[in-house]
Simulated assay, not measured.
Amino acid sequence: MTRTPRRSFRAFAGAALVAALAFSPLVVSQAATAATAEPPTDTDVTWGVRTAENAQGAARQNFAYTVSPGGRLDDALVISNHDDAPLDLDIYGADAFTTQSGQLDVLPRAEESVFLGTWITVGQGRVSIPAGESVEVPFTVAVPANATPGDYAGGIVSSLPQPEQSDGIAVDRRLGIRVQLRVEGDLMPGLAVENVTVEYAPTLNPFGPGAATVDYTVRNTGNTRLTAQQSVALSGPFGLLRSDIAGVEPVPELLPGESWTVSAHTDAYVPLFWMNVDITLAPAGPAGFDGAGDPPMFVTTAGTLAIPWAQLVLLVVLAGAVVLIVRTVRRSRRRRKAAEEARVKAAVEEALKTRE
């Protein structure tokens, strides 16, 4: 299954911040919105969303399903109007993706969904909610018979689009709950490291370490959602002076086909003419889904020259100084020896003259 996450918000570029804030309950639904009907407190969104209590479950943190290809299920979203005026909202399903900050977000309505967003059919595309009341919005998830096995992510979104403002910005306030769906079949979890680049920057301080930067891409090559703990270790030839780069964050949960760029940097690498790099991933599958297991650890290696120029210059200077000192000492000894020989010769000649 090949999936290319869509991350363009060109149609809503002017409202990116407002939309992201308004939709944050989907990102944090496991801790907040899914459990309560309270809206966010840091925006002017005046409604809340939660999962309905029905045959699919009660007090759920989000919508999570395991469905066979060709399967179908019914569920519902509850929307509560906390305002003192009626509220008209658009309701729709959309594909989700992992943002550059590592959070789950969904496509805006202006962008076309390809997978789960197209499998979700909402009973009411637009709902009117009286002041202070709640409504239950049913929806259906119908998985195509030819759907590729694996994990899919999306969201049920409630949206309050507003007319274009005088400055040309169209604001779209969104609130929703994530939908995690696994299509049954052969599951093949896998992560890979690609596009590894290694750079070493020597220091001018002959007594200080150099800087090393390792950039690479982690790609989800399987068909299940995965996260991973990761480490980047540096060493010299034959594994000498091996050390881990500190502060390498875990890989966030990636959907199949998604990738994550990583840059690991240290200013404390001691160069030994060659720098080995070992990148290790320890993948883990999502909680609540069984049957796939975690893939084995992934390890890849790379390397680059790490010539200690400052130390070499210092070594050359010290070697030159030693050679100069040795030559000076030898020259001084030769001069003293020549002077002593001349003194002795002069003394001998003077003694011979006296005997004559």
Rank of each mutant, 00 (worst) to 15 (best):
T4K: 08
P5T: 08
R7M: 12
R7L: 11
A13N: 08
A22W: 02
V27I: 11
A32V: 13
T51I: 09
A52R: 01
G57F: 03
F63W: 02
A64L: 04
R72E: 15
L77Y: 04
S80K: 14
D83F: 10
I91H: 09
A94R: 09
F97P: 07
T99S: 14
T99G: 12
D105V: 07
T140G: 05
T140Q: 10
A142M: 08
G150D: 04
Y152H: 03
G155N: 02
I156A: 01
I156M: 12
V157D: 01
P161V: 01
P161N: 05
P161G: 04
Q162I: 12
E164W: 09
D167G: 07
G168N: 08
D172H: 15
L175E: 00
M188G: 11
V196I: 13
V196S: 06
G208A: 15
A211W: 07
G222D: 01
G222K: 01
T224Y: 01
T227G: 14
A228K: 00
Q230F: 01
A233G: 00
P237M: 04
L241V: 08
R242Q: 05
E249Q: 14
P252V: 04
E253G: 12
L255K: 02
V262M: 04
H265K: 11
A268T: 03
P271C: 05
F273K: 06
T280P: 01
A282Y: 07
A284G: 14
G285I: 01
G291Q: 02
D294R: 08
F298T: 15
T304M: 09
A306T: 00
I307D: 01
L315I: 11
V317L: 11
V323T: 13
T328N: 09
R334H: 13
A339L: 13
A339Q: 10
E341F: 11
E341K: 14
A342N: 10
K345Q: 12
T354R: 15
